[in-house]
């Protein structure tokens, strides 16, 4: 009993900041620029949302969606074949170990450490200030993660299925697409969702590589609001809530997958 009360209590405590954000997004400025500790708005208003929508905020949301989709697509397209190759083939000279070690270093390396030369790479490709450039840069975070995670899932697909198909004369591509991918689907979906969340929340590269305001992603725009020396808490909260709903929804979808990711990390 104590356990249940404690669990609910802790959970409520950790959610207060979120409740505050939701409530503040509906408060007129006079209510949050005050010394009151009332969480719920007395005089709810939709002004902040209206201001954001009139300000073309949907456009920024669309940018975030485009970047997230692109990041997911590219990381799966490059990550799945790589994970398959590492799991199924004997590579010479322990190349797989070297490769995975390198993937690990990239996964752990601070993005800022690569940011300066990346700037030059993206400029050389003519991709500065484009979503495609940001999608490429995001691969630094997404691809190691996708390979790492998919590797575990591919290893879990019994090779005997493929061997059976091979006896039937199925070619490699047919095997991959008709046997491995369907069996991998839960893993692919989980990976996709994590990469999408990662990209949705990514800030540093968006700050550095996107210059035109109408191409900003949501976190990059939120940062410009935070840096103002004013207390725009209502607008920020509304913005924060809109930016958070998709990920909160996604986490509800894949909570089981989250535990799974962790056990993959254990491999």
């Amino acid at each position: 009993m104590i356990r249940i009360v404690a669990a609910f209590g802790l959970c409520a405590l950790s959610l207060i900041p979120l409740v505050w954000m939701v409530a503040t997004s509906f408060k007129p400025p006079a209510e949050y620029v005050s010394t009151s500790i009332a969480l719920w708005p007395q005089d709810p208003t939709l002004t902040h949302y209206r201001v954001l929508l009139d300000g073309g905020m949907w456009r920024l949301g669309l940018n975030s969606v485009v970047v997230a989709l692109g990041t997911v697509g590219l990381s799966l397209l490059a990550g799945l074949p790589a994970a398959y190759a590492l799991a199924r083939f004997q590579l010479p000279k322990r190349f797989d170990i070297v490769f995975l070690g390198f993937v690990l270093v990239i996964k752990l390396a601070p993005p800022i450490a690569l940011a300066i030369p990346l700037y030059q790479v993206l400029r050389a490709l003519g991709l500065l200030d484009t979503h495609l450039g940001l999608i490429l840069a995001n691969q630094i975070l997404a691809l190691p993660f996708a390979i790492w995670m998919l590797l575990g899932f591919v290893r879990d697909v019994p090779y005997s299925f493929e061997e059976a198909a091979m006896l039937d004369g199925a070619g490699f591509l047919k095997r991959l697409l008709e046997i491995v991918v369907p069996l991998l689907m839960p893993g692919l979906v989980a990976t996709a969702v994590f990469v999408a969340i990662m990209s949705w929340n990514e800030f540093l590269f968006a700050l550095l590589f996107i210059q035109t305001p109408s191409k900003f992603t949501l976190p990059a725009f939120i940062a410009t609001l935070i840096n103002e020396d004013e207390t725009l808490w209502g607008k920020l909260s509304a913005m924060g809530l809109i930016a958070s709903l998709p990920v909160l929804f996604a986490v509800g979808l894949v909570r089981r997958g989250l535990t799974r990711e962790v056990s993959v990390d254990q491999h």
Partner: peptide, 27 residues
């Protein structure tokens, strides 16, 4: 209610750091 609590507990972890920062700077 354990499943519900586990899902709710995960919420802060998946938020964008910018959103988290916006909240706590105000706090």
């Amino acid at each position: 209610g354990r499943t519900l609590i586990m899902t709710l507990l995960l919420a802060p972890f998946v938020l964008s750091t910018m959103v988290v920062t916006a909240i706590w700077r105000a706090w």
